[in-house]
Amino acid sequence: MSLKVEQLAIGYRSGKKSTVIAENLNFTIKCGELTAIVGANGIGKSTLLRTLGRIQPALNGSILLDEKPVSENTVRELSRKIGVVLTEPLSSRNITVTELIALGRQPYTNWIGSLSAVDLGRVREVITLMGLEPLKNKKCFELSDGQLQKALIGRALAQDTDLLLLDEPTTHLDLYHKAQILKTLQGVAHNSNKIIVFTTHELDLAIQLCDRMLILGPEGYYFGEPCELISQKNFETLFPSDLVRFDAKTGTFKIQ
């Protein structure tokens, strides 16, 4: 299993006019890898993630999952292959944490939406994995932003897809819980042989925990293992050097 991107151009269409945000993207992510997409605000991280998940169309190029173009899958097929956690607010918060996570099993339920023993078992596993046991019976409107974010990630994990895409999954979390979430995602990728891709501003954590990173910059992109990107001085292209400088020795950004 792999996620392969070939000559991809991302952006927006308005009538006959296209606005290109990034183009000529080529990279391959293998199963069992945790990958971060990083870059400055407005550079196209979320646009790329949404394009990978077929939430918005590519302007050019192709996206292949297990050597099959994503565009050739039906909606139901995609729901069993790709799980997505975006930053949009939850449509209804008047459900419990357990009910929210159980929604991730919809692609596998029968026509009346009944949960099987397998579905219920998967929901329990995810609740334990995400540390949501004390919150499982709480309504979503009773949760803090950070707790709700963990539950939304749990819903995607319950979907049990080959590819998991997350937009800023550590938003609203403190440092400990940011590290906890990313460490959990790393474990899921490695132990369950899944492809997990997420956008983030948590560069220091991503460098420490990711197998690969994609740096989007104004002059192009860089893709590879964090140690390779450090040795090639690619992180130094992220921000203007007048205020922020990347320290290759510590793998962290320093304020000038």
Rank of each mutant, 00 (worst) to 15 (best):
C31D: 15
V20L: 09
S46P: 11
I112C: 13
I196T: 07
Q180W: 13
Y12T: 03
Q106K: 13
T250K: 15
I21T: 12
G42S: 11
P218R: 14
D119M: 10
K136G: 11
P89G: 00
I196E: 03
H177W: 14
I195P: 00
Q7A: 13
R122H: 12
I255E: 14
I29T: 07
S62F: 04
T200R: 01
L243W: 14
E168S: 09
A179D: 09
S114G: 13
G131E: 00
F223S: 06
I255V: 15
L238F: 05
D204M: 09
K249G: 08
E6G: 06
R13Y: 06
V84Y: 14
P57E: 13
V197P: 02
K81Y: 03
I63W: 00
A179Y: 15
F198I: 09
L214F: 08
I127C: 04
F235K: 05
F235V: 07
W111Q: 13
G131I: 02
F239Q: 03
N193W: 00
D211Y: 02
V85A: 08
L216P: 04
E225N: 08
I112M: 15
N137S: 14
L115P: 08
Q256D: 12
A151P: 00
D160H: 10
G15Q: 09
I95W: 06
K138D: 07
K194D: 01
E125C: 11
L238N: 04
C31I: 08
S14Q: 14
G121V: 09
V85R: 03
Q7Y: 07
G154S: 05
Y176G: 05
Q232L: 12
A22R: 12
A22P: 08
D211W: 02
G44F: 01
L229I: 06
V84I: 15
Q256L: 15
I181N: 01
L203W: 05
L173M: 12
Q256S: 13
D162T: 13
L166Y: 08
L52W: 02
V197D: 03
A102L: 03
A156P: 07
D167T: 12
